[in-house]
């Protein structure tokens, strides 16, 4: 180098470095940010996990609640199929007449089954459940009417169901035709409110995730202030400086989403045994179902998106304030 003649064209200044293509530089920049931010996360496992846990809890709450309501809805769906109509016959109707009516109704196409519960059977059941046999002994005669329990075909629409009900009510032997479905409808309405609540809660906690990620990124920017200044001084673009923070936000959101799934799975595991016992008491083979793969993906991708948006907001607000002076 030192023996280069002074009048010769200066080699250092003229030989420009060959840079790879724009696409390559772009991809490499992203890959580099991706790897370096992962490295940062691994180097500070406690801080990273803590942030991810906060996000995880915020995501697990709406996700878990949604799952609960989903499960409840499934139970209700199971009951909906077994809609029953109770026909309370007049007291004057004799047991034999009730049997005949049951037979007649059994021929109707809208009905799948017709069961006759004789007043004596009803009384026996009542005695058994209420434990008031002594009191019942005082009664001169059985006060309970004959009861026909009908199961309509499950594919009847509400209008047909209403028509059937009116039809049955008009029968001379029938005192009262009662469709045991009103409470199912009410439960459905309540579940709909619950679902809406989940959406609201989800929106609120999604906002919380934005704030958590944004604040973490803001602290990260403050901690790396010197580094940002130096890199800006030697020609780093805003995109270059922004990139690792955005990736960091995505990682936090992603980890938070995974954490949320783990928390929901843990809660389900803890609930499985008591729910199983309860289902057994109702002679149901109901099991709590876990998050479907699609729902799981939604939680994780949603978390990552929230992380990205949160860090984007933080970076936009705080990065431009750091300029070398």
């Amino acid at each position: 180098m030192s023996n280069t003649p002074r009048h010769a064209p200066p080699p250092r200044a003229t030989s420009r470095l060959q840079r790879p293509s724009l696409l390559y530089r772009y991809a490499m920049g992203h890959l580099q940010a991706l790897v370096s931010t992962l490295g940062q996360l691994v180097r500070q496992p406690f801080n990273s996990l803590l942030t991810a846990l906060v996000i995880g809890i915020a995501l697990a709450l709406p996700a878990g609640l949604h799952l609960m309501i989903d499960n409840l809805g499934q139970v209700v769906e199971g009951w909906k199929g077994s809609t029953r109509i109770s026909l309370f016959l007049t007291l004057e109707t004799a047991t034999s007449e009730a049997e005949a009516l049951a037979k007649r109704l059994g021929a109707r196409t809208e009905l799948e089954t017709v069961t006759h519960v004789a007043p004596a059977d009803s009384l026996a059941e009542f005695e058994q459940h209420s434990g008031m046999s002594d009191l019942l002994d005082l009664l001169e005669r059985n006060p309970l009417p004959s009861l026909l329990v009908l199961t309509p075909r499950s594919d009847l629409d509400p209008v047909a169901m209403q028509a059937l009900l009116t039809d049955l009510q008009a029968l001379p032997e029938v005192e009262l035709a009662q469709l045991d479905m009103a409470w199912v409808k009410r439960l459905h309405a309540m579940l709909a409110i619950g679902q809406r609540g989940v959406v609201l809660l989800g929106a609120l906690l999604g906002l919380a995730v934005l704030v958590v990620v944004g604040n973490t990124i803001r602290l990260g920017i403050q901690n790396r202030r010197e580094e940002i200044l130096v890199t800006k001084l030697i020609g780093a673009t805003n995109a270059f400086i922004r990139r690792p923070f955005l990736y960091m936000g995505v990682w936090y959101g992603l980890l938070g989403g995974l954490m949320a799934l783990a928390l929901v799975a843990l809660a389900l595991h803890l609930l499985a045994a008591p729910v199983g016992e309860l289902a057994l008491l109702y002679q149901s083979d109901f099991v709590l179902h876990n998050v479907t793969p699609l729902q799981g993906l939604l939680v994780v991708v949603g978390g990552a998106l929230l992380g990205l948006v949160g860090s984007w907001v933080a970076v936009g607000r705080h990065l431009s304030a750091i300029e070398p002076r």
């Binding site: 530089r25 920049g29 130096v230």
Partner: peptide
């Protein structure tokens, strides 16, 4: 100096080239 003290000498010197996106 304005060096980054949490990075090695190599990484410090490499920074302008990394920023420019060299192989």
């Amino acid at each position: 100096h304005q060096l980054l003290y949490d990075r090695t000498v190599f990484d410090n010197v490499a920074l302008p080239l990394v920023i420019a996106g060299h192989r």
